[in-house]
Simulated assay, not measured.
Amino acid sequence: MMNPTKERVFKPEKLFAPRNFKAPKLKSTQFLEIGAGKGMHAMKFAEANPQKHLIAVERTRAKFDVFASRAKDLSLENLSAVHADAIPWVVHGFPPKSLDGVFLLYPNPEPKNASQRWLNMPFFEFLLSRMKPKATLVLATNIKEYVDEAEVLARKDWALNVKRIEVSKDSARTHFEVKYLARGEVCYQLNLEKPAGYQTRFDDWFA
């Protein structure tokens, strides 16, 4: 179980559903990507994994419009592009233990506000509650300090199974990843697995 002494507790009941929200029709094998950008990873993942359904959420209108246009051209039935703020969308879109995996690829490192980094946010506990036992959250970044902090939090505060790797030099999942690797930077990845029997305070909470 995650650390019960964490002071800030997420309050999902305070969040309204996004405008024009429609609850998704979830599949038996369901994945989520938060911060999908222009959809490069989302489309590659969907093409490579036709039996896995991915809901990819992007908040920025300009990036989402590019993503949605490209996704429409590909006509991938296992990919849903969503323009929304991910936190309320996740609260209203997913029941407990419904996700087989989550992708957080090159999130904003929030250099001036560490409390807004994903593993520092109370929402992270809620996100874990939406994941199935043994599901994996993939976090990638090019910032060593970010991955160092996230690894410590994942182990100490969230009690997750952690595997840390360096991203292959020929990887090309996102536009950011392509740019960073082309500059010769090291990119890091954490695979955070939710242990069997893991408990959160939101395991029985439904929108």
Rank of each mutant, 00 (worst) to 15 (best):
A84Q: 00
T174F: 06
L79Q: 11
G35K: 12
R155T: 15
P50G: 04
F94C: 09
D100G: 05
I87R: 12
F64A: 15
N49F: 01
R59V: 11
P24R: 05
I143N: 00
K63T: 09
K132I: 07
L74K: 15
F45I: 11
N142L: 05
K44F: 11
L74D: 05
Y188M: 08
L79D: 13
E149N: 07
K6I: 13
V162N: 09
C187N: 08
K179R: 03
S129D: 07
V66K: 11
A86S: 12
Y106V: 11
A196I: 15
R61N: 02
A17L: 06
P24I: 10
A159V: 00
E110Q: 15
Q116P: 06
E193V: 06
R117Y: 04
S80W: 00
K11M: 15
E177N: 01
R183T: 03
T5D: 06
A56G: 02
A56Y: 05
G197F: 09
R130N: 13
D157H: 08
P111E: 14
P122G: 01
L32D: 10
A196R: 06
P195Q: 14
A196W: 01
D85E: 12
H83V: 15
E33H: 14
G35Q: 09
L137P: 10
D85N: 08
D85V: 10
L32M: 13
F126D: 01
